[in-house]
Computed example of a mutant assay.
Amino acid sequence: MTEASLLSPAPAPLLAWDLPTRLAKWGLAALVGLAFVSRYYGDVGLVWHQWNGLAILVVVVFRVLWGVVGGSTARFAGFLRGPAAGLRYAASLLKGRPQHFLGHNPLGGWVVMALLALVAAQGLTGLFTSDDIIVYGPMTNVVSDETIRSASTWHHRLYPFLLGLIGLHVLVNLAYSLFGRDNLIRAMITGTKPAATYVDRAPATPGGVGLALACLVLAILVVFGGIALAGGHPFP
């Protein structure tokens, strides 16, 4: 190693995920955990559990909006790829020479979408769930008893699938962080990855804070306003 190389500064890390994307991810993770706690250890009427579910829906709607107008690695168009890209990525993993992406890889992108879909379904069915005694979801007063029974059933049926997918997501991220080149957990905390050659564009282009706040306000209006317009009671 030459003296010049010793004195030259290390390349600056590259932006991988902007702050709104990271806050949405960790916020949703915290809310899903709190949903479990408030369901089994909360108040009798599950008021906190219902607030928890409404907050989850707000974050999901925000993430959908941010997936359209957010930073480059947050946009669905930036990380959702077809089956051919997924197969190429899987083949590179099997060969021990995985492709490196600054944002989500082709398989991870679809896992993110599956998680969002399951969390959204869990939250939406919760709006129509009731135990016929104390707990009444925000939309139970505008639907039939049959719809309430069906929603309540699915609200409980979806839960194991959601937990399983979350567990798989955590294990894969741990494996990448401990044994791979990409420390995904650290990157989702700091927002950066080491300077290197990536398949997707680097560095990422962040979304604006003002735009993120506008998406958050719109998400709140969609969830609470939508329930109110449909004749439900948006506040537990």
Score class of each variant (00 low, 15 high):
2 T>H: 13
4 A>V: 11
5 S>T: 13
5 S>L: 13
8 S>V: 09
12 A>K: 15
15 L>N: 05
16 A>G: 00
16 A>Y: 07
17 W>M: 02
20 P>T: 00
24 A>C: 14
24 A>Y: 05
32 V>H: 04
33 G>C: 03
37 V>W: 13
38 S>L: 12
39 R>V: 10
40 Y>E: 15
41 Y>R: 11
45 G>Y: 13
47 V>Q: 13
48 W>M: 13
48 W>Y: 14
48 W>L: 15
51 W>A: 04
51 W>C: 06
52 N>V: 14
53 G>E: 05
57 L>I: 00
57 L>W: 04
58 V>T: 11
60 V>L: 02
61 V>P: 05
61 V>S: 03
62 F>S: 06
83 P>S: 02
83 P>Y: 09
85 A>I: 05
87 L>E: 12
88 R>H: 11
90 A>S: 09
90 A>H: 03
90 A>N: 03
92 S>R: 09
102 L>V: 06
105 N>E: 03
105 N>L: 06
106 P>R: 11
107 L>K: 03
111 V>L: 14
119 V>H: 03
123 G>T: 07
127 L>A: 10
135 V>T: 15
137 G>H: 10
137 G>K: 12
138 P>D: 04
142 V>L: 04
146 E>Q: 11
146 E>C: 05
153 T>G: 12
154 W>D: 00
162 L>M: 14
163 L>R: 07
164 G>S: 06
168 L>I: 15
169 H>S: 08
170 V>F: 15
172 V>T: 08
172 V>L: 14
173 N>D: 08
180 G>K: 04
180 G>R: 04
181 R>Y: 14
182 D>V: 13
185 I>M: 10
187 A>Y: 06
191 G>T: 02
192 T>L: 03
195 A>D: 13
196 A>R: 05
200 D>T: 08
201 R>I: 02
202 A>C: 01
204 A>D: 11
205 T>Y: 11
210 G>F: 02
210 G>P: 06
210 G>V: 04
212 A>H: 01
216 L>M: 12
217 V>H: 01
219 A>W: 00
223 V>A: 04
228 A>D: 06
230 A>N: 11
235 F>N: 07
